[in-house]
Write a protein that binds this DNA or RNA. Structure first.
Length: 458
RNA sequence: GUGGAUGUAGCUCAGUUGGUUAGAGCAUCAGAUUGUGAUUCUGAGGGUCGCGGGUUCGAGUCCCGUCUUUCACCCCA
């Protein structure tokens, strides 16, 4: 008999892990709802036609494809089969795939349900996504995203509120040392214009995004192989090396971007986002205008975000941005603008674990375990159990006849904080030994008193 | 997709230039203790050394393949 294993890059989550994960999920959900977002769920699988072409060529390769049902090879063209080229055969044998993110299924949903959606439409979605990637630290093949998107408005309030929500979620779960990086596609295009790299943007974006990781020299090296001139590299780094406050960077770039329309647009957007934050009564703490931030899916057109937790070896834990043309990909005639972002719970979990930020009492368990000596005391215990549960106190009774030691060990293992041992004395008197497993103290009380005691501590 | 590391008890890991019956801690179970655990003591169970092949008188140890996990690159939450 072979030992069972899990598919590469997937994990089980036991009770201890789930308690911590739910702590994160609960807080994200509360914040999303507090900002007026409504829940949405979409199927794990989508038609491949909805998924392909939305994430670039790399993304298409990372899609998990689902084999058609039935005798899926029967009608496949012989020539295609003999060519032994999977790209030719795939469309014939697979028409469904697992979702790669939540944004594209959301756009599909919006296009399909336009008649009943009121705009601007704000939805949140917390579901797993799948990527056929090679797993490594902080990277899984199945992981959860928590998306909040607004579609149908160009207002930069949305961008500002994204920053507010990130701050609020991190505040709630106890992460204090983090950076929200913000940039704008227009700024990136502006840079390309100014240094004379128009039409050659993509290699530039890919290279400068790695700046803080590999350094200036390596970025230059990479760009030289892409035929960037020394002159363009000099003016590029004149821009990228601007230091100082967000305001200073904006002012510097305004002077640089006088001739570029998209650059000016980007700067004005960013400026307004910072001003809005002030009107909300907050500041740009944790927020950094990062001119080199170029990461993000190909469909972003406006502001782009990325959040990093400082001093951990985990990549970004959240990202997002504005996309103007997403619904057009599904044949939408109108130009619906959307903006959204996503928390990566699995990475947030890894980071919090690394930093030791989880509260100790995150375990989900019963408050009370009832112990007993025989059939009669077990029966008596059931009535006590019902009273505890009716009072809203999570509780359970040891289901088998067992030595008291075993029953108390069980309580310890499950981190149940209180026990009540029931025997013939207790059945006669109705006075029960209420024991605190942490301190070892025990008090003889009637059940009503015990309930009061537990409630007063919760 | 490219390159490196890894795999020994349920868990974390020892295991010498290849040499007899593969060890420890933790965990589990039983007892010391007929109604009070988490600290103590005693004992017990638990392994096709990832899988397949090869070299050798002999392989946990060396070689090849394969799978797993993991790290980096590409890309990304």
């Amino acid at each position: 008999m072979e030992k069972p294993t899990l598919p590469k890059g997937t994990r089980d989550f036991g009770p201890a892990t789930m308690a911590k994960r739910q702590f994160i999920f609960d807080n994200i959900r509360k914040v999303f709802q507090a900002y007026g977002f409504q829940p949405l769920e979409t199927p794990a699988m989508e038609n491949l036609s909805t998924l392909t072409g939305k994430y670039g060529e790399e993304g298409d390769q990372l899609l998990f494809k689902i084999l058609n049902s039935g005798d899926f090879l029967k009608d496949v063209d012989n020539q295609k089969l003999e060519a032994r080229n999977s790209k030719l055969v795939t469309p014939a044998i697979s028409e469904k795939g697992l979702r790669y993110d939540l944004t594209v299924p959301f756009a599909r949903y919006v296009v399909m349900n336009r008649h009943e959606i009121g705009f601007p439409f704000k939805r949140y979605q917390i579901q797993p996504v799948w990527r056929a990637d090679r797993p490594q630290k902080g990277r899984y093949r199945e992981f959860y995203q928590c998306d909040a998107d607004v579609v149908g408005t160009n207002s930069l309030l949305c961008e500002a509120e994204i920053i507010l929500m990130i701050k609020e979620v991190f505040g709630r779960i106890g992460i204090n040392d983090y950076t929200i990086k913000i940039n704008h596609r227009g700024v990136l295009n502006g840079i390309a214009d100014v240094i004379g790299a128009t039409g050659n943007e993509t290699p530039m974006f890919v290279a400068i995004d790695k700046l803080d990781k590999i350094g200036e020299e390596k970025v230059k090296e990479e760009l030289r192989t892409k035929d960037f001139t020394e002159k363009s590299l000099t003016s590029l780094f004149e821009i990228l090396n601007v230091k100082g406050s967000n305001r200073n960077k904006l002012a510097f770039l305004f002077s640089k971007f006088e001739g570029t329309r998209s650059g000016q647009k980007g700067l004005h957007d960013l400026e307004e986002v910072f001003e809005l934050l002030e009107s909300y009564g907050t500041d740009d703490n944790h927020v950094e205008f990062d001119i080199a931030l170029a990461r993000g899916l190909s469909y972003y057109t406006g502001c782009i975000f990325e959040v990093k937790i400082n001093n951990v070896s985990i990549g970004s834990v959240s990202g997002g941005g504005r996309y103007d043309n997403l619904t057009q990909a599904f044949g939408d005639k109108e130009n619906l603008s959307g903006v959204g972002f996503s928390f990566g719970v699995d990475r947030i979990y890894d980071a919090m674990e690394e930093l030791g930020l989880f509260p100790k009492d995150a375990q989900i368990s019963s408050k009370v375990l009832l112990c007993h000596f025989d059939e009669a005391s077990l029966r008596y215990g059931l009535s006590v159990l019902s009273k505890l549960r009716a009072a809203g106190i999570a509780s359970e009774i040891y289901p088998d006849q067992a030595k008291l030691k075993k029953q108390l060990d069980f309580a310890n293992k499950k981190m149940i904080p209180y026990t009540i041992v029931i025997g013939s004395d207790e059945m006669n008197s109705g006075v029960l030994p209420f024991k605190n497993m942490g301190t070892g103290e025990q008090e003889k009380l009637e059940i009503e008193k015990i309930i009061e005691r537990i409630r007063s501590q919760a």
